[in-house]
């Protein structure tokens, strides 16, 4: 069992969840309608909860405790994709990111059900339902607004075109990729990407939107190796305000 490879996998998943969970929580109280506000906020909370579970597993593998890992690292120590750290923008971008990220997330957990590492397999089995709802919710909006008015279609289309290179960055392979696949810990980013494309293509083809030609896109890589946009550090500073003021604070 390759502990380093497992840690590498858990870190990128946990960091993606934590950062996107915090980003999406910025919409609380500002959603386009009350019902959506509640749903979107709940899903953001789910993501932070999922990251906590993954940090706990990392803790059992010898890493620092979850609060420290979440709030005391600098941007270059984070393994999240650049996609999740981007500002929330307008609701069109946040919805497109929700759709593109949560589809990948659903299939990642689906693949991890077959992981040779039992605790990971059990966790994936448990969280898959949660991710299924996130994905259903995203699909619902994309189909609705992707067939809505000129404005909703144009807005989603430009958000989609902007987001795609970043979304492809989710599937950046780590140094441990071969080990993960050989030891059946995780089926790998390439396979995940194939399943992701199949799903987003299926949803988008039911709308007036056009999926850009993915072969012509250059993905925004680097996030998995600690290279981030200018947007991550300010977010981390905000997230760690309490612990920075009083390291013994309890919440």
């Amino acid at each position: 069992m390759n502990i380093e490879a497992i840690k590498n996998l858990l870190y990128k998943m946990a960091d993606d969840q934590l950062i996107l969970g915090h980003r999406n929580s910025e919409w609380i109280g500002q959603g386009p309608l009350l019902e959506e506000d509640i749903a979107f906020a709940s899903m953001a909370q789910d993501k932070v909860g999922q990251s906590y579970t993954l940090y706990q597993m990392l803790n059992e593998l010898g890493e620092d405790e979850p609060d420290k890992v979440a709030f005391l690292r600098m941007a270059e120590q984070f393994h999240n994709s650049q996609f999740v750290e981007l500002p929330i923008g307008e609701y069109d971008f946040s919805l497109i990111r929700h759709f593109l990220f949560d589809t990948a997330d659903y299939y990642r957990f689906d693949m991890l059900i077959n992981s040779s590492i039992e605790p990971i397999s059990l966790l994936a089995r448990k969280l898959k339902g949660e991710c299924r709802y996130h994905s259903m919710h995203a699909d619902g909006w994309i189909k609705k607004l992707g067939n809505g008015t000129d404005e909703s279609i144009n807005r989603l289309q430009s958000a989609l075109s902007y987001a795609i290179p970043y979304a492809l960055g989710i599937f950046e392979e780590s140094k441990m990729e071969d080990t993960l696949i050989e030891e059946n810990i995780f089926g790998g980013e390439i396979l995940l990407r194939e399943r992701w494309i199949e799903h987003i293509d299926k949803v988008i083809s039911q709308t007036q939107l056009v999926l850009p030609d993915l072969a012509l896109e250059s993905p925004h890589f680097g996030g998995r190796y600690g290279i981030h946009t200018e947007h991550l550090q300010p977010l981390l500073n905000e997230m760690s305000e309490v612990i920075a003021t009083d390291p013994t604070a309890d919440w």
Binding site: L33, E35, S42, Y133, M136
Partner: peptide
């Protein structure tokens, strides 16, 4: 009750509204 564009979206909203 939830406000929604259709009954499928109503289901998606109701899930968090009434089974949070």
């Amino acid at each position: 009750i939830v406000h929604a564009p259709d009954r499928e979206m109503a289901f998606l909203f109701a899930k968090e509204q009434f089974s949070r």
